[in-house]
Write a protein that binds this DNA or RNA. Sequence first.
DNA 1: AGAGTGGGCCTTTTT
DNA 2: GGCCCACTCT
Length: 691
Amino acid sequence: MKEFILQDNFDLSTSQIDFKKQLNDEQLKVVLNAEGPALVLAGAGSGKTRTITYRVAFLLERGVSAENILLVTFTNKASREMTARVESLLGAYPKGLWGGTFHSIANRLLRVYAPKIGFTSNFSILDSEDSKSLIKVCVKDLNIDTGAKRFPSPAKLLGIISYARNSGQTIQTVVESRYPSFSELTHVIDRVGDLYELRKRAADAMDFDDLLLKLKDLLYTDAAVRDRLANQFQYILVDEYQDTNVVQAQIINQLASIHKNVLVVGDDAQSIYSFRAAEIRNILGFPKSYKGAKTFKLVTNYRSSPEILSVANASILKNTTQFKKELEPVRPSFERPNLVPASNQRQEAEYIAQQVLALRDKGTKLSEMAVLFRAAFHSQALEFELMKRDIPYEYRGGLKFFERAHVKDIVSHVRLKVNPKDEVAWMRVLGLQTGVGLVTAQKIIKQIAGAASLEEVLAREVKVGKRAGAGWESCRRTLHKMTMEELPADLIRAVTGGEYRDYVEAEYPDFMDRLDDLEQFALFAEGYKEVRTFLDEVSLTSDYGAVRDESSYESEKMVLSTIHQAKGLEWDAVFVINLVDGKFPNGRALEERGGLEEERRLFYVATTRARKHLFLTYPITGGYDTLTISQPSMFLQELPGDLFEQVRLKRAAVQRSSWDTDESTIVLDDLGERTEVDVSGLSFLRGVDEL
DNA sequence: AGAGTGGGCCTTTTT
DNA sequence: GGCCCACTCT
C-alpha cells in the first residue's frame, strides 16, 4: 500500500483546482497539512464545509483512492450538502467514496457483517416510532401495573433507554441524573429494557442506537473485521464532531486505529445535541486521545455582516462553559438585526410574509430566505399566512413524509417481504384489520413465528378468533399478492391497489391526499430495484423532499426549518420566530442540566445562519383557550438594545373571545418598556392595540 | 377482546 | 388544536 507523506510546500501548480486562490490561509493549512490526527476548531461560517470538501479533493488529487476515504457527517442534510459540494468541485462524484451519516455508514457495514453478531443481513431498521410501539408491547407483556404509580410513557422509556445506551451509562445512572422522579422505577425500567433487547433480536431488527452500538461492539470484539476496515479507511473526516457521542467516537477511533489519519471538525459553541448524549468532551479531549494531534482554528467568518455577528458573539458570551472566542467579520457593514415584537402569532406571520415579499422585490431570491424555529409546531400560524399569500415554501421539520401513518403502513408491509420475523411490522400490519387488536395480533405472530418467507407464513395453519377471522383473511390476500412481486414499486402497489385502499378511505377524512401520497411513494420507489436498498433509504432518510426531486431544491421556495435541521446551512435573510420565554428557550430544556446553555447555543446557531438580514420576532400574546401574555425570550432581554433595529408594529387588536383571569391589570414588559394594561373586559384588547 | 367516545393532556430538538 | 388514554358498551 502506498503511503503519502504530505508536507507544507507542495507544488500545487499542476493541480486542477486553485487551492491557494479559493481558500484562505487558515483553510489552506488544514487542506495541505491535516495529515495524521487533526482537530479543526471552526467557528460558524468560517468555511468548515469548504475546508473539508477541498481536503477531500486534495487527497483524491494526490492519488488516494476514493474508497479509502470516509467522510462522516451528522445529519442527512449535511451529508447531502457535503457530497454535492465534493461533486461540484470535482465535476463528478468520486466513485467509491464513503460518505454519509454515522447511521447510514453503520448500516452499510452491518449489512455485510450482521451474521457475525447474530442478525441476518436482512435485518429491519426500527425508527423511533417503531421502537416506541415495541416498548409498549414489552410493557404490556411484563404485566406492569402502569396505573398504580405514574409510569413513564413509551416515549419516555425509549428516551431513557436510548440515552443510557448512547452515553454508555446504566439505566440506573441515567434515571438518577436525568429522570429523578422515576428513580423508584429503575428496576422495572431495566426489565423493560432487557425485554426490548430480546424482542428486537427475535425480530431480527435494530433500532437507530443498535446501528451504532452493534458496529462499535463488532469493531471491539472482532479484530479481523476491525483491521480490515481500519486498513481500508486511510483517511477519515468527521464533520460536526462536537455533536458526536461516546459510541460514535469509539467507532471512529477503531476505524482510524491503523492509519490514524482522522480529521475532526467542530465548534463547541454549536453543540446542540446533548439530548442525544452528544459528548462535548470528545472534541475537547481529542488532543489527549490522539497524541501529537495537530490543532487548527478557523475564526474568520465569511458569512454574516458584522452587525449580525455582534449579536451572536454577545449572546454566546453569556455561556460560561465554552471556549471564549469571537468570530471575526470580514463582510462589509450592513443593517442591524431587526427586533420585532408582534401582538400575536398572526401578526408575526403577517409581518414575515410582508418582509419576505419586500425582500423579494428588492432582488433576494425566495430560496435565499429561511424562517427558523425552536420546535416544529411553531410554524403553523406562519404556514397559514404563506399559503394564503401563495408564497412557496419548503417545510423541514415535524412529521416527515416517511413518518406519516399511511406511508408507514405500506413500509411495514414491504418490510415483511424481506424480514418475516419483523414483529413490529406485523403488529402494524395486523392492527390495520378490524377485529384485530394488540392481543389477537400477538396470538397470530406467535403462530407464524419461524416462517422464513411470506409464502411460508401463508402456508401456516393459523387459528384466530371469530371476530378476527375476516381481518386475517383480508391480510392474507394482501400478503399473497405481495408474494408475486419483487420490485419495491410493485410491492407498494400490491398493497395500495388492494384492500388497504378501502381502509384509507374509511379511516381518514383526507383520504384523497393520502392516496396521492401513496402514489407519489410508489413513483419514488420506482427508482429502486432492490427492496432492501429501498427500505434502507426510507428508514435512514426520513425526509423525502430532498430525496424526491433534486430540482425542487433549486427552485424558488423559501425554507421553513427547525434550528436543529438548519445547522450548517446559510441564507441571505433569516427570520427566527417565536422568541418567547418558555418557547425559546424551551421550558423543558431549561430543567435539564446545562439546558440553558444549550438553548443559547441553539440561538447562536440560529443567528449565525444569516448573511445579511436577520429578523428576531416574537408574539407578546399567545395561548389557545386563554390569552396569555408572554415575555420576550431572555436571549433578547440579556443583550444590549442598541445591537438591534427596534421595529415597532402597529398593534392589531387581539381576536380572542375568552379571557380567563382574576387580575384586572397586567404588566406587559416589552423589552424594558413596561405598560400596565387593563384586562377587565375588552379594554384589554384596545390596550394592546395602543401599546 | 375490541371499538367507540369523551375528557384530559401536552406540546423539543434527530438518526 | 390535536393526540392519547381510560372508560364503557357491544
